[in-house]
Amino acid sequence: MSAPEETVLRAEREGTTLVITIDRPKARNSVNLAVAEGIAAALEELDGDDDLVTGILTGAGGFFSAGMDLKAFLRGERPHVGDRGFAGITQRPPSKPIIAAVEGPALAGGCELVLSCDLVVASEEASFGIPEVKRGLAAAAGGLMRLPTRIPRTVAMELALTGDPMSAADAHRWGLVNHLTAPGGALDGARELAGRIGANGPLAVRASKQVIVSSPDWSSDEAWRRQGEILGPVLSSDDAREGAAAFAEKRAPVWKGR
Rank of each mutant, 00 (worst) to 15 (best):
S2K: 09
A3K: 14
V8H: 04
R10G: 01
E14P: 00
T17H: 12
T17D: 03
L18I: 01
V19F: 08
K26R: 13
R28C: 02
R28M: 08
S30Y: 05
V31D: 06
N32P: 01
N32I: 01
A34T: 03
A36I: 05
E37N: 12
A41E: 15
L43A: 03
L52D: 05
L52H: 09
T54M: 12
G55S: 08
L57P: 04
T58V: 02
A60Q: 10
A66D: 14
D69E: 09
D69V: 02
L70S: 15
K71V: 13
R75H: 14
E77G: 04
D83E: 15
D83P: 10
D83A: 13
R84L: 06
R84V: 06
F86G: 01
I89K: 11
P93F: 09
P94F: 04
I98P: 00
V102A: 08
E103D: 13
G104M: 03
G110Q: 13
E112M: 10
V114Q: 07
C117K: 05
L119S: 03
V120Q: 09
E124Y: 07
G129S: 09
P131E: 08
P131R: 07
V133K: 06
K134G: 04
L137N: 11
A138E: 14
A138H: 15
G142S: 12
L144P: 02
L144H: 12
I151L: 01
P152D: 10
A156P: 08
G163F: 03
M166N: 10
M166S: 13
A168Q: 06
D170F: 00
R173C: 03
R173Y: 11
L180V: 06
P183V: 00
P183M: 00
G184M: 01
G185W: 05
A186P: 02
G189K: 05
A190L: 04
A190V: 02
A194I: 09
R196Y: 14
R196I: 03
I197V: 11
I197T: 03
G198A: 13
A199M: 11
A204T: 12
A204Q: 10
V205R: 05
V213Q: 10
V213M: 05
P216G: 01
S219W: 02
D221L: 11
E222L: 06
A223H: 11
R225D: 15
R241T: 04
G243H: 08
G243E: 11
P253E: 10
V254I: 00
K256A: 11
K256S: 15
G257S: 15
